[in-house]
Simulated assay, not measured.
Amino acid sequence: MKKLINDPADIVTDALAGMAAAHPELRVDLPNRVILRQDAPTPGKVGLVSGGGSGHEPLHGGFVGLGMLDAACAGEVFTSPVPDQILAATTAVDSGAGVIHIVKNYTGDVMNFEMAAELAAAETGTEVVAVIVDDDVAVQDSLYTAGRRGVGGTLILEKLAGAAAEQGRPLTTVADIARTANANSRSMGMALTSCTVPAVGKPTFELGEGEVEIGIGIHGEPGRSRVPLAPAREIAAMLVEPILVDLPFTKGDKVICFVNGMGGTPLLELYVMYNEVARILRGQGVEVARSLVGPYVTSLDMAGCSVTLTKVDDELLRLWDAPVRTPALRWGV
């Protein structure tokens, strides 16, 4: 294992200290491992809180800022944040307008966010609404999940709901937008290599030189199948075709097309993949209204990618285009 770390036990704390040093527009609560907007809580604004295991950066801490999250909780690598962390984040961003928890559908995350919401209601009277992200079409149940996993669609939810909250919309409206974004999003990923968790020091799973895993989870969970390495156009079809069938997406639909890197894949290859994905969508009559390419929902050093398609109307497009200023996503400001 070769990694730029000090002690594996300190990697999350060290990384959060680095974020605080690099981004003075954020406020980092190191004891609770919570990243906050410097101006939180914003009077009258619905607070947005998300989080999860570390190792998926820039998700979630890189999406804290104007137009997206108000706070993000960082768990240990691939481990849910604990209820006390989530409670601290929820309390810190509560302006009285309510708080939304955006939760990826993993058993530990769902349980800990539920506990934190109950504590917030009991201790401070905060109204908390949870929206579960379950956009992965690869498998119905996997390691750590009951139902579908939350993957690339998480970014879409955080952006669209974040824009709505920034505009001052009420709690129920912001939650409905997040739920609509989830219902309209489908994702599927693949891996060329495993990732290596620092505390473990060896790859999570083994792939042969000529093999790829289709339908992989963002923690290295098994996918649909292990197949021989193939050209990008064939890999793209293995990812996109199940997505198109699942919603389904049909001729004339407009989508946000997000081609995501898993952490160890260069942009050169991601743009090759995007070209193939866009070609498939044109052939199906699906219009790419907006696109995003890059490593945003990662799995440490895993080589591979995922594709997320979100069906959008004019209202959702306006929310996508709304200003955003975070460490990892920035436009319109």
Rank of each mutant, 00 (worst) to 15 (best):
D136Y: 05
D134M: 06
Q140Y: 12
P8W: 01
V12R: 03
V139I: 10
L329T: 03
V93K: 00
G264L: 12
T79P: 03
S80M: 00
K104W: 05
F249H: 11
A97P: 00
D94G: 03
A303T: 07
G52D: 02
T91C: 07
A163M: 13
L192R: 05
A122W: 09
I218C: 02
V174E: 08
Q38K: 11
R186V: 15
L143S: 12
A120R: 02
K2H: 04
S50W: 01
P198H: 01
T308P: 10
L48W: 09
G168L: 15
R33A: 09
L319K: 04
L316S: 04
S187T: 15
E276W: 10
N105A: 04
A191F: 02
L59R: 07
V277L: 04
A120W: 02
I218E: 04
R330W: 14
A121R: 10
P231K: 09
E127Q: 14
V137S: 08
K251P: 04
R148P: 06
D94H: 07
A230S: 15
V64E: 02
D314L: 05
V200Y: 05
V28W: 03
L192M: 11
I5P: 01
Q167R: 13
T265N: 07
W331N: 10
G208K: 12
N6Y: 04
T204D: 09
G261Y: 03
Y144M: 09
T308F: 11
F78G: 00
D141S: 12
L229A: 12
T154H: 11
E211W: 05
E123G: 03
K311P: 06
V151P: 02
V324C: 10
G52L: 00
A130Q: 15
T298S: 00
F258P: 06
D321K: 03
G189H: 05
P83Q: 00
G108F: 02
P43K: 08
A121E: 13
S95F: 05
A17Y: 09
S80I: 01
G44C: 09
A130G: 14
M111P: 07
P203S: 08
L160G: 06
V212Y: 03
D141W: 14
S291G: 11
V64K: 01
E123K: 10
L319P: 05
